[in-house]
Structures are given as C-alpha cells and as structure tokens.
Amino acid sequence: MTQRFSLTVGPLQFNWSADAFADFYARIADEAPVDRVVIGETVCSKRTPFYEDRIPAAIERLQAGGKTVVLGSLAMVTLEREKRAARELFEQTALEVEINDLTLMNWARPPFSIGPLINVYNEATLAYLAGQGAKLFCLPPEIPFASVEKLAHAANQCGAVPELWAYGRIPLAISARCYHARVHGLSKDSCQFVCDKDPDGLTVNTLDGQDFLAVNGVQTMSHNYCNLIGDLDRLAAAGVRSLRLSPHTGDFVAVCKTFADAASGAISGAEGLARLKVLAPGADFSNGFLFGSCGAAELAPA
C-alpha cells in the first residue's frame, strides 16, 4: 500500500547522555521506517559539547540506513558562538538544514527547510520563504486545523512539502532563563546540566495537582503529547504530506512503526492509538491545538 505521508523524526529535544544519543540514532538508522531524520541541538547550546563528537557517526549510519539527514538549528540564537555554529551548519556540509531561527536566513542555501519554531501563520509568509528556497515547512504546532488546510494548500502550490507535528511533547516557549536551573536553585550559567535528570522533560503541575506543562531547560513544553494518529484521514484530505514524530524515551522505533502502519492504512487510527497507549503508558495524548478548544484539551475523536 502506498504511503500517504512521509515520516520525519524530529530533533531530540532533551538532554540525553552521549551514549543514549548514539544508541537512539543507531536504532532509528537500522530499524525505524522513516524517511527523514533531523539531528542536532535545538534547545540549549550548552549541551552540545557533550555529544557533538558522536554526530558524524550518527549521520553516517542514518544515511547508510537510507534516511535523509537534516541538520537542525538552535531555536534561539543570541551568543557569538551560537551564530558561528549556525553559519557552520550551512558551510561545513552539503546536508539539508532546518531553520528554527530566522538568523539562519543570512546564510541559507538549498536545500533548506523551515522548522516548527518559525512563525509561518499565513500563505504570504510561506510564499516568501518558499521563494527564498525553503522546500519543506513543519507548521507551527499552535495553529488550528482551518489554518493548516490553507497553509498545506499554499505549500503544495509552491512545490514545498507541508509537515505537521504529529507526536510528542510540543515546544511552547523559549526563554533566556533556564527553568530547570531555577527549580533546582541554580542559575543558567552554573546550571550543572540538571536538565539531564528528566529525559522526557520535568512535568509542571498546578497547585490543584493537575498536570499542566513541562520544562526542558530554557524551553517550556506541553505536558501532554501531541498525537495525531487518529486524524490521518483528515490530514491527508487537507494536503498534509509529512508527519513529524518527536523523540521520547521508551521504544521509539515502535512508535515510528505504528505511525508507518497507520500512514499506509495497514492499521486503523484507533488501532494505532491503542498501540501508542501501550508504548507510552505515562503520556496523556492530545490533538487540542488542531481540533480542540485549546492545546491542553483532551484528545478529541476524529
């Protein structure tokens, strides 16, 4: 059966050890039925030195596994060394780069794509960036389905691929301040890399005891995991052509396989959802930004 969607594994958002990083990409390379893999630090440049020497081997193995490798850029570029690193993404290899901060537009050369952290809310912005050479747009996770329909149509008309965030905790905000450091009584400059204690992010509860958000260093995320596996028919009808799966701990290869099976129609959305519930037993799933009253809304049936 033909695939209705290509599948992208998004960049690892969390501070995992170098060994866990290398093991994760080795398994994705060898076993995950996905088309593209975005790799690189998107959250905090202080984490990079711990694993950057493992990236070339990971890229090589992903390519040997038949995956298109895309270099992900930092979400918010402020420091000189961050600017230098951003520029080097374009200069040191010929690989596709995913732009997550418009700073990178200064050096952009084909092939490049636009990540979910760039504000593409309308057709005019999409057309401008496509005109500059962007070939894929992962749309901002907060936009409602009515906008997705229009943006997917606009992207297809420009010959670019419209992609949606389909699985995993959603990045909601980025700050100069590190919340992981703050809740441990530390400052960002002396953070002791405490974000490594929470490989899926640290849940933030309300004083009512309700699960609400998650912190991941300078990033704030949804508590819930976005999960669009039950919505693939209406996404396909809207012209969405690619799905982004954001890495979490657990058997992520199995998550990828489940989406691949649902994307090909081999299993139903309901069956896919049942499988994902087993694979991520602690996660609360949601499709609220797209189909509910807000991003925190419970999963709404298709």
């Binding site: 504000n119 901002p140 936009i143 909601l172 905000a173 949804s222 930004f289 807000c294």
Partner: peptide, 21 residues
Amino acid sequence: CVMAEGRCSLSSYATGKSPNM
C-alpha cells in the same frame, strides 16, 4: 514577558487564544 515574545504558545495552550494569533 519572561519568554521570547512572538515565540510563546503558553496562552493558547491553556485558552486557545494567543498573542501571535
């Protein structure tokens, strides 16, 4: 604002209404 403005979806996560949109 403690978050980078224009790059924050916290409000729409809780209410569906955001500064950007």
